[in-house]
């Protein structure tokens, strides 16, 4: 991370202004900030405990509808649990899985990409082969199999996503490293006696950092979807942990009578993933001068 921070600092005020001038970064970052605040402050802002059952108020509608109550702003589910509180607490698992998985996949994928792309030869071929091998599996199928093997729990979900999605970073970053390594300034660094490690960390890594940051943001969205998928099947976490996927699975039985119970987690997932994708897109455009000219 220190290399990232250094790279950002070097770009200075000009860069910061360019980032904030991107509406997509503002909107996407804003959404993620709100979700993060909800997750951090869940204990204080959620009106109820997410597991507290109120059997006198089962499937009560949102507060603005007929029969709704102010105590349950978004209504309750079939066990009388507050939908809003569950959605707020669900943000915790979503964000933890999103951030930790993206971090893990980024570290493994980018490290292997830097090594393979920079040194080339046998190392590169070996890494490339493993990536190809991994990619012949549909991604969710692989995470499912891994989860069957290692068991359930938030940490296991993170492990499963990292082990599946590092290839995404590896493939894309490697292509960029291959181009960068042939640049004159990298060759010059070697000529004036920089070690391989120093060249990699101070010359090559900063050049591919914008790409890695962009992928990180998009990967968070992917991880959040995978977690929702797995907890929807009932494989991700124990029942006493609230997740959006679980809320969806619970709401399926009441879809005819209580649509709001289903719509709240659906919107929560879509908005959060949209935040990640907007931020990723915005960063991609803001950090890549070639795309800026093309207006992508």
């Amino acid at each position: 991370m220190s290399a990232l921070a250094a790279g950002a600092a070097e770009r200075g005020l000009l860069g910061a202004g360019r980032l904030l001038g991107q509406p997509r970064i503002l909107v996407g970052g804003g959404i993620l900030l709100l979700v993060a605040l909800a997750a951090l402050l869940a204990t204080w802002i959620a009106p109820h405990d997410p597991l507290e059952q109120d059997l006198l108020h089962m499937l009560s509608p949102p507060m603005w509808a007929d029969g709704g109550e102010a105590a349950f702003p978004l209504g309750t589910d079939s066990l009388g649990r507050c939908v809003l509180s569950r959605a707020i607490y669900g943000a915790r698992v979503a964000l933890i899985v999103g951030i930790m998985s993206a971090l893990g996949a980024m570290l493994i994928g980018s490290t292997l990409a830097l090594l393979g792309g920079y040194f080339g030869g046998r190392i590169d071929r070996a890494i490339g082969y493993v990536v190809d091998l991994w990619m012949s599996f549909p991604p969710v199928v692989l995470s499912l199999i891994l989860l069957v093997g290692v068991g359930t729990g938030v940490d296991k979900v993170i492990l499963a996503v990292v082990l599946v999605d590092w290839t995404r970073f590896c493939r894309v970053v490697r292509a960029d490293v291959l181009v960068t390594r042939r640049r004159d300034y990298v060759l010059a660094a070697r000529l004036i006696g920089f070690s391989h490690l120093r060249t990699l960390l101070t010359e090559v890594l900063p050049a591919v950092t914008p790409l890695i940051i962009t992928l990180f943001s998009i990967e968070m969205g992917v991880a959040i979807i995978v977690e929702a998928t797995l907890s929807f099947i009932g494989l991700s976490v124990p029942p006493d942990v609230t997740t959006w996927g679980q809320m969806l699975a619970d709401a399926r039985g009441d879809i005819q009578s209580a649509l709001w119970v289903m719509l709240v987690p659906v919107c929560a997932i879509i908005v959060t993933v949209l935040g990640c994708n907007l931020l990723g897109d915005g960063l991609r455009v803001a950090l890549d001068p070639r795309l800026r000219q093309r207006g992508e």
Binding site: G221, V266, C276
Partner: peptide, 29 residues
């Protein structure tokens, strides 16, 4: 393209199983 771009990004943020649930809500319920 901003509008078109945002639409595509929004659509990209909806995984297929959420589409399934949304379509059931609209065309089934």
């Amino acid at each position: 393209e901003t509008a078109a771009d945002l639409t595509v990004t929004l659509l990209q943020s909806i995984p297929s199983f959420l589409w399934a649930l949304l379509l059931i809500i609209v065309f089934g319920v």
